[in-house]
């Protein structure tokens, strides 16, 4: 259940960023979560509902970008989509590869509600 740790880290990052930018609350949050990033989405959604309670993210609209895995074969340089770590290069069958994307796990953007205009 590491997904709860992930949610709590998101809450920490979002709260710190909101305070730094002088926002009053967070309206939207956009997350990059690669398909190879060890996150089980059902567990994540469950942890999210629990983890954001009474935090700055409690009323937020969440958008998750699921980024598909892509790799380049180290033997034949073929670029291909990677669903699983055990997938082989479809061109030459090699398992030696450089993973180009799909492991992302980051807070990309947030929409903040600004503080009341200063007089």
């Amino acid at each position: 259940m590491h997904e709860l740790s992930i949610v709590l880290s998101i809450v920490d990052i979002a709260t710190a960023e909101m305070e730094k930018a002088g926002g009053q609350s967070i309206l939207e949050i956009e997350l990059d979560m690669g398909c190879l990033s060890s996150i089980e989405m059902n567990a994540f959604e469950f942890a999210w509902m629990q983890g954001i309670k009474e935090t700055a993210l409690e009323h937020v609209v969440k958008k998750v970008n699921r980024i598909e895995g892509r790799a380049r074969c180290l033997d034949c340089s073929n670029g291909f989509a990677l669903q699983h770590f055990y997938d082989a290069c479809p061109a030459c069958g090699s398992h030696r590869m450089d993973i180009l994307q799909g492991k992302e796990l980051s807070v990309k953007t947030m929409v903040l509600s600004q503080a009341a205009p200063s007089p």
């Binding site: 880290s9 980051s106 807070v107």
Partner: peptide, 20 residues
């Protein structure tokens, strides 16, 4: 319906596991 003067888009780009 965000009032554009009251909301602002923030580019965060932070790794969720950065603290660890």
């Amino acid at each position: 319906n965000h009032d554009s003067s009251a909301s602002k888009v923030l580019s965060v780009e932070k790794d969720i596991l950065q603290e660890n």
